[in-house]
Amino acid sequence: MIKESVTRFGRKGVDFIETTGMMGVFLFNCFYHVFRPPHKIFSIIKQIHFIGARSTIVIVFTGLFTGMVLALQGYHNLKDFGSTDLLGSAVGLGLIQELGPVLTALMVIGRAGSAMCAEIGIMRHSEQIDALECMGIDPYRFLMVPKFIAAIISLPILTFIFDIAGILGGYLVGVVLMGVSEGSYFQGMYNSVDWADVQLGFVKSLIFAILIVWIATFKGYFLHILKSGGHGAEGVSRVTTDTVVLSSVMILASDYLVGTIML
């Protein structure tokens, strides 16, 4: 009885280590090819269009509302201390350091990460990946590399757009609605936000980009090996759910990690 449960626990541990190892090798393979040009520029452009350009509208709206909420909350809290002058800096710092990169990444997981995973999972299921290998085309090069490069380009851009939309949202609520002076909103922000803060947001968005594509493509690519996978439509749907959950958690965990290292 006890032996059995210990065995089960041990097997879980071995499975975990195996999967982690596979993920590491997978990422290494992808980056090995990322750093070996030439790349198909048009496939990269297509992926930027999918991951980046088509997420813009969603990102603008989420950014706008996030900024508005931040300003609303911040205004009511700061009003009690009579220091509504700090509103700009609160909104700016919050957006640029934390909310911009994190919320953008979460939106991209929902829009593009799940789709990427399902796409590659279906390609695996319908033997398209085998077909690629049989044509002598490296699937890493053909499928993963454009996604990685596109995400690394798109996520920072989306994050910047989110930040600016958020700053604008904060302006609308704080200045237009609540009557904080325009000068103190912007000047307060300019003074408190440093280049280092912008850098932090930038680095975060790069790390998130790699995380998102890594988890999504890995789960799809090894659909047939993974415990939760298995073949068929059900396997694809399970793996896609896994991707969304795991990458969201990883985003928040790594956000904390990067924060402690860089602050």
Binding site: G92, I96, P156, I157, F160, I161, D163, I164, I167, M189, Y190, V193, D194, W195, D197, V198, Q199
Partner: peptide, 12 residues
């Protein structure tokens, strides 16, 4: 957007 954030807001 990046230039705005880096130059105006971030003050590089």
């Amino acid at each position: 957007s990046f230039s705005y954030l880096a130059i105006t807001v971030g003050g590089t």
